[in-house]
């Protein structure tokens, strides 16, 4: 085989490998949406974050606008402090916005949904979302349902 053929084949091989890496980055993983590092960070306190993880999505009206970048425990308030980075394009969140932790599907990933408030003033770097709603913990709901069912069933028998 001539040197030229070998060089062309090696070129094809390297191009294929780089194309595969590109596909893994762009199509398989979420690198495309990862450009939110330049955004601003706000925090919120929750009584219970359930299974929320760092890097979980932050959405508004179902559209992803940022990511959870840190989860810490606040010793004074006995609450979890969640830091989230919001992409710079969404810099008009009113200060009285509402943050809730929801679950995508029955067993899916947990994420933070933000509902905008009514104030004119908007959140800035280091701001805090005061109105929050904790995660729904599945065991608690099942427990409540069971309790109401058994008490309800007991009433029926009497």
């Amino acid at each position: 085989m001539t040197t030229r053929t070998i060089e062309i084949l090696v070129g094809i091989f390297v191009a294929l490998g780089l194309a595969a890496l590109f596909m893994l980055a762009m199509k398989v993983s979420n690198l495309t949406e990862y450009s939110d590092e330049g955004g601003y960070t706000v925090s919120a306190n929750f009584d219970n974050i359930g299974g929320l993880k760092v890097r979980a999505p932050v959405t508004m009206a179902g559209v992803r606008i940022g990511r959870v970048t840190g989860i810490q425990y606040d010793r004074e308030r006995y609450q979890a402090t969640v830091a989230m980075t919001i992409a710079p394009a969404y810099d008009y969140l009113p200060v009285d916005s509402h943050a809730s932790i929801f679950t995508a599907g029955l067993l899916g990933e947990q994420y933070i949904a933000i509902e905008p408030g009514a104030e004119d003033e908007t959140l800035r770097q280091g701001g805090r979302i005061e109105h929050t709603q904790s995660a729904l913990v599945l065991e608690q709901i099942i427990g409540r349902v069971l309790v109401s069912l058994t008490t309800g069933g007991g009433n029926g028998n009497e």
């Binding site: 980055a25 199509k27 398989v28 993983s29 979420n30 990862y34 890097r55 999505p57 990933e109």
Partner: peptide, 14 residues
């Protein structure tokens, strides 16, 4: 594709 993109993280996984 969309579920894959949502859950596969470039830094953590790839």
């Amino acid at each position: 594709w969309s579920q894959m993109q949502a859950s596969v993280d470039f830094h953590e996984d790839v």
